[in-house]
Design a protein around this nucleic acid. Sequence first.
RNA 1: GUCCCCAUCGUCUAGUGGCCUAGGACACCGGCUUUUCACGCCGGCAGCCGGGGUUCGACUCCCCGUGGGGACGCCA
Length: 481
Amino acid sequence: MHKDGNQVRVRFAPSPTGYLHVGGLRTALFNYLFARKHGGKFILRIEDTDRKRSISGALEKLTSTLKGIGLQYDEGPDIGGNCGPYIQSQRLDIYKKYTQKLLDSGNAYYCFCSEERLNNLREEQRKRKRPPMYDGKCRDLSKDEVEDKLNEGLPFVIRLRYPREGKTVFDDVVRDRVAIDNSMVDDQVLIKSDGFPTYHLASVVDDHLMKITHVIRGEEWLSSVPKHIFLYESFGWEVPVFVHLPLLLNPDRSKLSKRQGDVSVESYLKRGYLPGVMLNFIALLGWHSADDREIYSLEELENAFSLDRINKAGAIFDIEKLNWMGGQYIRSLDVEYIADQSRHFFEETGIDISDNGKYLKVVNTARDYVYCLSDIVEHAKMFYEDLIFSEEDRELIGQEDSRRIFSYWIKALGKKTGWKPEEISLLIKQSIGELGIKGKNFYFPIRLALFGNCHGPDIPTLINILGTGESIKRLETCLTQ
RNA sequence: GUCCCCAUCGUCUAGUGGCCUAGGACACCGGCUUUUCACGCCGGCAGCCGGGGUUCGACUCCCCGUGGGGACGCCA
């Protein structure tokens, strides 16, 4: 299943931006699934080589989100492993060592060009409708020239001396064979002037040192593969298998971004989209089994997943379908589980749910209306709080017929406690007959009195949840208004 | 602009030359159920980007267009 019969080792390598992007979650998930499917290892590595972008606390947030959603990694910054450290900013000496090898072999060179010169160069090239690339000014500096500039203390970067002739052909599990002309590949900066490596150097070095067998990442990396291959070959290392995943897209088909909606996994989780839902939904963006199945637990995905069923085309992140799936899960899981997961949403609102029997009934009823847990409160609070009536509601409540209904029901319900739903159904029929009020004129006032809304669960359910005492109390409240 | 990638209902997708009169799911529309809403059930609408080949036969293979996306940073 992989080269040399070695154990599969894959990694998810995000930069610590402060939240987990749904695109990142998809990459993480596919890596995870592939590792689990083949009994391999799933590694978390933090790519914090951009000092401007790193945010404090991001690491903790990331690791807890990953674990919370169920993607437990086998090696990583907080849990260690044999190939650490797993944070790139702690591996600077390693990159330095390998950069020196590149310098020695002539596959990299010092560049002293100022940012200003580079900007002007690019601008000029753009104007001439040429691809913006480094012009190689420092590519052929003599040893002495380099020495002099270094001694002068000039700031420098180290660039890859990429061949200008020929073409690079490589295989990708998703894209098949890809060919890129070497003349199109830039002399990539490997070490920035602050001494930190860029992605290209760091990820190649780390992937090799961490014995990564399959590089599974987003398609945005496809065009830099030649640089990576050149690096592997310069070091004399084996090139891993590349798997470039189709991009996740905004509704307008551009690369999924936070400008067009919520892309933070944490915020979905916070709103009570179940972890399993996020995973299940996102697995289907770019992957699909041969049959029509769409609902999978993480464990089932681990078994069903395979790289050869990954799609080539990008997929729009469609929140409508996410919502549908959310509702499916909320309705099909054990009510105890849903109730338990929803508990804190009620507590945050200050609702007293200490009566567990009632709480379970409430959740069981309210879950028909929602696709994420936080919305349950909206459909449940009427069972706990005093009802608020609009002007229109009051008018209906105050009508003579309404008052007759309330009186009748107060009296009827008061005869006993522990009414069963079937008995309530019977009582409804009976009261309609005796009062001579039917249809909307009967149901709307009583529903309003009990629930504060003309729409919602049926009356037997309402009374069953509220209990006889509270039901009578609510009817009396309306009668005295 | 250059290079690379991609292309089946509005969306996610099944389809690997005949099983396709193109299947499923979301959304949408209609019906049933319900006092109502929601859930649920049933049904419907809707697609192979275009043009050339190859072939007895193309959604499927090839070419050319077109369209979309990505990359072109001392960001990842």
